[in-house]
């Protein structure tokens, strides 16, 4: 009996030990809803008609009136936060994602272990905070081997769009957009309100946020591909193209 008591105490002690190493990420969760995952789905559409966008599909840009076929379209999204009904925020730690139109990657951003509750807003940064651009070698989704980091001018490529276009100089277009400082800073934080219906996080219950993004917007205000088909460094064009794209990303609906 004594031994059993001891075992109970011991296991409690071990449990305590393990929890003592964890970071304090407790969230006041007074109601009955359970922790769950939230998924943000980026639906890519093309132009004013919002036809389906996909790689390796010939598209016509409605403003440039030039044909283009993407073979790369991806961008960083970081620092995702959710606003609860009571006005408090849940910020996902280490929140960095590459949204990729290629099926080998993903157009989904998954926020794991969100405290159970009802949420009214999502906030995210397109691109990346400047700290990560100046902190040396990173890993995971921030690994420079992902091809989204400039070797010669340190900083992340925050959006990459490449493909072929018959009107472009070499028949190809290459846009690597980024920049984290000064007037060429392209990272942009945006917040979206879900309107009347709240996003409910409750264990395995589906909690999806659907966003619509339109790559054609990159060339709103940019020159024709026959004039300019390459831009691979932080500059005013990178700033204006990425801003035009980010500004047009919109919240569409939630799935509960």
């Amino acid at each position: 009996m004594k031994f059993l008591n001891f075992l109970i105490i011991l296991s409690a002690a071990i449990a305590l030990t393990f929890t003592s190493c964890k970071k304090d990420d407790d969230h006041d969760d007074t109601d009955h809803l359970h922790e769950g995952n939230v998924t943000i789905d980026f639906d890519h559409v093309w132009g004013a008609t919002e036809e389906a966008f996909s790689l390796n599909k010939e598209l016509t840009h409605p403003m440039l009136n030039e044909k283009m076929t993407f073979n790369i379209f991806k961008y960083y999204v970081s620092n995702v936060r959710l606003k609860a009904k009571d006005g408090s925020w849940y910020a996902m730690p280490e929140s960095y994602f590459i949204v990729d139109a290629d099926p080998s990657g993903s157009n989904l951003v998954t926020i794991p272990n969100v405290p159970g509750g009802e949420y009214t807003d999502v906030e995210m940064t397109f691109g990346m905070d400047s700290t990560r651009n100046t902190s040396g070698a990173q890993s995971g989704v921030l690994d420079p081997a992902k091809g989204m980091f400039w070797s010669w001018n340190s900083g992340y490529i925050m959006l990459k769009a490449e493909g072929t276009a018959p009107t472009a100089a070499n028949g190809t277009f290459t846009f690597h957009l980024g920049g984290f400082k000064g007037e060429n800073k392209v990272q942009t934080t945006k917040s979206y309100n879900f309107g009347t219906t709240a996003l409910v996080v409750d264990g395995d219950r589906e909690a999806e946020i659907h966003m619509v993004a339109n790559p054609a917007r990159l060339w709103h205000g940019a020159e024709k591909l026959s004039v300019k088909s390459v831009n691979t460094m932080p500059n005013a064009l990178a700033k204006s193209m990425s801003s035009n794209y980010y500004d047009a990303v919109r919240f569409d609906h939630i799935h509960n």
Binding site: F149, S151, W152
Partner: peptide, 20 residues
């Protein structure tokens, strides 16, 4: 790092010559 100061951290310095 580099003559033009383009690299802002020693850890990512070797990335440039490896991929140039």
């Amino acid at each position: 790092f580099m003559w033009d100061g383009g690299i802002n951290h020693i850890e990512v310095m070797p990335f440039a010559p490896i991929t140039n």
